[in-house]
Design a protein around this nucleic acid. Structure first.
Lengths: 221, 221
DNA sequence: CATAGAAAGATTGGATCCAATATACAATCT
DNA sequence: AGATTGTATATTGGATCCAATCTTTCTATG
């Protein structure tokens, strides 16, 4: 007997499904910041009870995507400009280090995959998909660092500001500029220049952060 | 009328209490790694139902302190040597940066508080309390960085390896060495030398990590 | 009319109950 | 005996119910 066995114990629980759906909605900006999240309402949307919803909300709160108040409920978390600046600064530190550690481990497969994501990002016309292709590109390089803990934190910090980052990409030349910077980063990786890849990544993140903050300060007054 | 008002809405929920108690027990090593955590049993210990326990366990899992399997329950997370090495490396990067950012903001009060924690650490004879005083010392300096997001991550990563770190401190001269290194870090901060404080912090963490790994490799074979 | 306070409705936190799954052990077959 | 199957028990995941709290609305009163 031979068949493609899958581990059924990895089947997603109701809480997993609700969590992933809400996480995606918040990251993509489908749920506006400050929006109320009623347990009952969400439970009905997913044809389940409030218990798995509560667990999903608990996870979202741990990740900083929502804030809750006892007996008052959950709202989609909003970030102040100071908080956004801090997270961009943090990401610059962390991702610059991750790619420095990653470069020595990059093999042909990694670079080819990154090349595909890079091209895809450059060609993508649907602005709704930029966030996803942007992630794919960076993660495809970061994976080579073989640092699961670092990557977990990278993911969590990106989750928090992804909504804003997507807004930044749609700004005037945010997208074109990001595409150019991606090319430069990928080039450095291909050449095996870890220091260059690291400092380019750092600048890439800090630049995006700066132009986003300028934009938000105008917008918020 | 004048009184110390507290916001009653911040009163801890049952889930909060269970979470904090379990977190403390795991960090301090009171719960051995691999130990089973039965929802019913914990609920009875806290005179509550399984619902708040489930929420507490969910939070612990998000923070990596326990691992759970569907329908099988939760066990206290254990870390492989590779994972421990990664977290020490991560902490070195992060905490070195935090203290670099903190030094310019340190005022007299901060330094006096750190001095007290430093002395307390040096005098403390109860090895069970070393972990706590160690935290107090470092945090008292880190606070000055005014980077809440960084500090949240610092705390989470320290939580994961605190059990092992405490073991390291009780090693032969781990404690004396740590006390000396604390003095040096505090001196650098007092002098306002951010770069020195940063590199000393980095070495302090990497040294502890290295001697811990040596110890664990012997112990685990 | 404005406002304080009470009552009603909505919403969350927690308790209890049921269903799904895993584990341990007995029964059965070769 | 050893392996396999069935069954009983324990445990978790989810549904439903109740209690605590918040929010809104209504009313009485100045």
């Amino acid at each position: 007997m031979k068949l493609d066995a899958v581990d059924v114990r990895q089947a997603a629980s109701a809480a997993d499904i609700v969590y992933e759906a809400l996480r995606k909605a918040i990251i993509e900006g489908a749920l506006a910041e400050g929006e109320n999240l009623r347990q009952d309402q969400i439970a009905q949307m997913f044809n389940t009870s409030r218990i798995p919803v509560r667990e999903a909300l608990s996870r979202l709160e741990q990740h900083g995507l929502i804030t809750t108040q006892r007996y008052k409920g959950a709202v989609v978390a909003g970030l102040s400009i100071e908080e956004i600046e801090e997270i961009f600064e943090f990401r610059a530190l962390l991702e610059a280090e991750v790619i420095r550690l990653a470069v020595p481990n990059m093999d042909r497969r990694t670079l080819e995959l990154a090349r595909r994501h890079c091209d895809e990002f450059g060609k993508e016309s649907d602005s709704a998909k930029w966030g996803e292709t942007n992630r794919n590109f960076h993660y495809s390089l970061y994976e080579a660092a073989r640092r699961p803990y670092y990557l977990q934190i990278v993911r969590a910090s990106l989750d928090r500001i992804d909504r804003y980052l997507r807004a930044q990409l749609t700004l005037t030349d945010g997208m074109k500029r990001a595409a150019r910077e991606h090319e430069a980063i990928l080039d450095a990786c291909t050449k095996g220049d870890a220091e260059l890849a690291s400092s380019l990544t750092r600048d890439h993140i800090l630049d995006a952060g700066r132009s986003l903050v300028v934009f938000l300060k105008e917008q918020r007054g």
